[in-house]
Structure formats: structure tokens, C-alpha cells
Design a protein around this nucleic acid. Structure first.
Lengths: 196, 196
DNA sequence: CGGTTCCTTGAGGATGATCAACGAGGGTGG
DNA sequence: CCACCCTCGTTGATCATCCTCAAGGAACCG
């Protein structure tokens, strides 16, 4: 979902620039703003005690993120960090809630977006719980396939470290598992690049 | 969230009885109905290839479940099974969607519910990914604490098997971990019952 | 061409799963 | 009342798997 930029600006939203690796909000911080990406990419992550990173999701151009806590007066369960230089539009919580009230179609879009997110989180959790690294990686690759064309394998634009962060595995495990999978022809690896 | 029963009936909903262990819907089945529990309890689960069960959630009296696929034309990512004899109200998908259109306040309630679900799924995923059994169990216990009173420990109404299914661990691990935790006084175990 | 990020491989170890066997409690019907 | 059953809890031994640590190689970019 995304809300029309002119509408956002007319309600007093401002665009803010974030440098690569800059924090948009932190875990356990209270939610005060609606965020929508104009350009760039943001990741939502959790860090555990040992500093291991788990990625909840990536968001890019045209996408909003971090809405649920706005609706339920909660703190953010994860941190948001720009992974490229990004331009992000911010609107205060109360204005955002007013927009939802005034524009039923926006509220409906948001509802559908939430439904999609829940669905994909259920799928993700299911894959992660399945233990076996191969399942996790496969599920990740399937979920993040841009094109659903089955015939030809497509380049995967994620590093092995990123796949590890998404699947809760370690890089080395991802590497070893991917090379197993390439032997079984589940993926193709050409010149270190992954095709799925 | 729950929708007023009279309203549901006036739109043609019917109440159906389910026996203990009866399937309400299966994983990968297409979503045709809105479900709301009148009495009883339903669990949403996934089974992996080896038949190991992972619990996505429990739902009881007054709660609805399985809504997201209705909104996005998707199949169910998990199965729903009655864990007690239950009475559940069913309303067809198109009628449900019409209700959402006609009653903005219901749509808004659903939106808030979805926000809550996403939030708690994020928290769950975070805990599970944290690897360490102790974290997972602790997070589970905290999330399912009925009362937020910190002073006195309360009885936990889950079997060790259920905790295992929620956390993706095995029963034996849960048992061993719980007895470790009782030595550290994180939980109390009296006569096999868990207090947290 | 120097630095940074990413990928790769091996060896060793910790940990949770698995398997197997048994104990404990609660409810029901004879 | 007690004998049985069924579900739940417990314990120990062994095993497979993924993590950890360490070291080095490859690709890319200004």
C-alpha cells in the first residue's frame, strides 16, 4: 500500500533523507509516525543478545512500513534501518489516523496490506520452524522470487549473508546448503551468483 | 474482534458444531468463510513432513480466525482444528466482505485486530529465531500470561507438549529447560504444574 | 591497485533431537 | 473402591546437525 504523495503533503507530511545504515526507528521505541518510502530501501530487523541479526523484511520505493504499532499504541517490535541512502516521507500518527477515518478506501487498502503481511508471516514462520535449512532457504527463495515464471531460473539479488539473516541460519550453513542444492539442480550457481 | 451475533445471523450466517479434533479447514484450502467462535477452542497449526506440529495460535470464545485469506484471495497457510467440542458461526466470504463495506466501524476493528496479530507474530518470530530454548519458552510464557501482575506467579494452562508445539521445540527439551528455569526461579513447578 | 565486502572451506564442539522406557495422575465403569 | 486406560510428565543415552572459529580467496569499485 501507499498513500498518494500529494495527499500526504497536504496533511503536513515531510520528506526526510536517511543515509545508508541510518536508523529510522529502534526496537522498543514508541510509534509516532507513519513512514512511506519515496526512494531507497529499509530493512526491519531484530538483534539478539549475541548481536546476531534477524531480518523481518525489506521495504522499498512506494511501500509503507511500521504501521501496526500506530494502530494499537504499541512499541516497535523491530528496528528499521536504511540500507541505501533513502528518502522517506513521515506523517504524524494522529494525522495518519485521521486520514484513515476520512478515506475509507485508504483504510481498506491498509486492511488488505495487513492481511497480506499476516499471510506471508505465517508462511515464513512455518518455513523457519521446519528446522531443515534446505526448507528454510527454499521457502525464502520462493517467497522472494520476483517473477513467477517457472521455466527459467532468475538471478537472486540477495547476498548469502542476507539469506542467512532472513532464515535465521549462519552464512556458512547457507553457503554449504546452496552448493548442495546446486548439485540437485534446485538452484544454479554461476560465478558465485545464485539463480532460482 | 468479533461481530455481533444477531448481525451475523441476519446476514445468513449459520452456527455449526464441531467435535473435538474435527478439522475446520485444512492447510492450502481456499478460503470461503468467515469463522467466529461461539463456544469452544480452535488451534491453527502447521504439520511438517515428519508430522511434527507447529502451533500458530489458539482462538476461543468470541474470537474470529482465518480472516486474512478472505481479503486477499489466498489459500489458508495453516489448518484449523477444534480442540474441544465447539460451536462456530460461519458466514460466506462475499457476505463478510459486504459487511466490511457497509459497517466502517467493523472494518476498523478488523484493521486493529490485524495490527495486533502482526505485532504478536513479529514478537513470536523474534523469539523463535533467537535459537536458545530458554528464550523461546520465556517469550511464550510472557506472551500468554493472562494477567500482567508481576508479583505473584500464575498457573500456566498449557501442557508441556503444547508449549513445545508453540515454540518449535520437543517435549523433552521443554521439560528439561523448565526444570532448569525452576532452579533459577524463573518459573515455579509445584506438583508438575507450572507457575509463571 | 588497494580496500571493502562477500564467498569458501575445514575442523571441532555444543546442543537439541531422537529413541526408549518408565512414572504419575485423573477419570470411568464394573 | 479399585482396576484399567489414557494422557501427560520424566530421565538417560546416543546421535546428527548446525554453529563456531579460523583462515584465506574472489569479486567489485573508486
Amino acid at each position: 500500500m501507499h498513500i498518494d504523495l500529494n495527499l500526504l503533503f497536504s496533511w503536513g507530511a515531510i520528506a526526510k533523507e536517511y543515509k545508508k545504515n541510518e536508523v529510522v526507528f529502534n526496537e522498543d521505541e514508541f510509534a509516532n509516525f507513519y513512514f512511506q518510502i519515496i526512494e531507497g530501501t529499509v530493512k526491519m530487523i531484530n538483534l539478539n543478545d549475541e548481536g546476531k541479526e534477524f531480518t523481518q523484511g525489506y521495504f522499498s520505493e512506494g511501500q509503507s512500513f511500521g504501521e501496526p504499532p500506530l494502530l494499537i499504541n504499541e512499541n516497535y517490535p523491530s528496528a528499521a534501518i536504511a540500507i541505501h541512502d533513502s528518502k522517506i516521507i513521515k506523517l504524524s500518527k494522529d494525522k495518519f489516523l485521521k486520514i484513515l477515518d476520512e478515506y475509507p478506501s485508504i483504510q481498506r487498502n491498509l486492511l488488505n496490506l495487513m492481511a497480506k503481511r499476516i499471510h506471508s508471516k505465517a508462511v515464513t514462520t512455518k518455513a523457519i520452524i521446519n528446522q531443515k535449512p534446505e526448507y528454510r532457504i527454499n521457502a525464502f527463495l520462493k517467497a522472494h522470487k520476483s517473477d513467477l515464471n517457472n521455466d527459467t531460473k532468475q538471478l537472486v539479488y540477495f547476498t548469502r549473508q542476507e539469506i542467512a539473516n532472513f532464515t535465521g541460519l549462519r552464512v556458512e550453513t547457507v553457503i554449504r546448503e546452496l552448493s548442495k542444492m546446486s548439485k540437485l539442480n534446485t538452484v544454479k550457481i554461476i560465478n558465485h551468483k545464485i539463480y532460482y
